[in-house]
């Protein structure tokens, strides 16, 4: 690729990304009433989206080969337990990450 072609490719990627981010706000501007169905989706979507993001993070974990997803399972269990116990976001995240790093570097 020439430099111009590279710049064009990057520009297209920027444009595509911005389209996905701005489209809902362009379709449903603040001045006009938002359709009821969209308003409903806006209120129920967050729960489902966070579920989707958790699965997205784990998409490359293989249950049948390698470590069978055990480091992930153990570390997530620790994150949940820590969080239910202290409810300190940073503690839960740091604890779970440290546990995962130890597991993949020394155990599995």
């Amino acid at each position: 690729m020439t430099l111009t072609q590279r710049i064009l490719t990057i520009a297209v990627i920027v444009l595509g990304t911005m389209l996905t981010r701005f489209l809902p706000f362009l379709l449903f501007p603040a001045g006009k009433p938002t359709p009821k169905a969209v308003h409903y989706l806006g209120s129920v979507l967050p729960g489902a989206v966070f579920g989707l993001l958790v699965v997205y993070c784990l998409k490359n974990v293989s249950l049948f080969t390698g470590s069978h997803g055990l480091p992930e399972l153990i570390s997530i269990a620790l994150v949940v337990l820590l969080h239910l116990w202290k409810r300190q976001m940073l503690l839960s995240i740091a604890g779970g990450t440290a546990c995962y790093m130890l597991l993949v570097q020394f155990v599995f």
């Binding site: 958790v54 992930e72 997530i76 994150v79 969080h83 839960s92 995240i93 990450t97």
Partner: peptide
């Protein structure tokens, strides 16, 4: 991953 689990929770 840990952060998204916490946010989900």
């Amino acid at each position: 991953t840990a952060m998204f689990v916490v946010i989900f929770l």
